[in-house]
């Protein structure tokens, strides 16, 4: 088992455990911090797959900007584990069973799929480097790129309109 496999299993276990802790933490601030751990683990997976641009963007945009936004909103509302709304126990059990049933169905459907021979290439391949992605983004995908800037502009206007005190 090489270092790549060890890192794969380590990052996978870290991602899954932190994702479970996101869901079960009572204090919302702890949930945000565990979600940052999940994003760091997923960025590690991107680096293992040699998608370096996406790894950095994932760290900056998700673990940086979006999680700071979540944390900021939590601090603004002054929430803690005492004000955390509690669902009744049967609804919680039903939710966990529903999620587990979905997992069971997906795993059962994919277990027999003939994918053992398909390998995701790790450590090599240069399609994830910023040079190639930039060439594709500004040649073939320049129209969606410009449209996404319009989307951001409308999101900014929408946030200001929604957040305004009337």
């Amino acid at each position: 088992m090489g270092i790549t496999q060890v890192l794969f299993w380590f990052l996978s276990i870290m991602a899954i455990l932190s994702a479970i802790l996101v869901v079960i933490s009572k204090n919302p601030v702890h949930s945000v911090l565990w979600l940052i751990v999940v994003f760091v683990a997923i960025s590690g997976h991107y680096i293992l797959l040699n998608a370096q641009f996406l790894a950095i963007v994932n760290l900056i945009v998700y673990a940086g900007a979006i999680m700071v936004l979540f944390l900021f909103v939590f601090m603004l509302m002054n929430l803690n584990s005492e004000t955390e709304p509690q669902k009744n126990r049967w609804l919680k059990i039903a939710g966990v069973i529903a999620g587990g049933a979905l997992l069971l169905v997906m795993v059962a459907a994919l277990k027999r799929a003939d994918l053992k021979t398909q390998v995701a290439q790790m450590n090599t391949g240069d399609i994830g480097l910023i040079h190639n992605l930039g060439m594709a983004l500004f040649h073939d995908y320049v129209i969606p790129f410009e449209i996404s800037s319009v989307l951001f502009l409308s999101a900014m206007v929408g946030v200001v309109v929604i957040g305004k005190k009337d």
């Binding site: 939710g95 390998v119 995701a120």
Partner: peptide, 28 residues
Amino acid sequence: MPINYYIFLAVTLFCIGVAGVLTRRNAI
């Protein structure tokens, strides 16, 4: 790595997300 490990990892994370949406009441 064989692709099915990635599929199972992503499915597991997705289902944890689904269970979280169904069990929690805090909107954030």
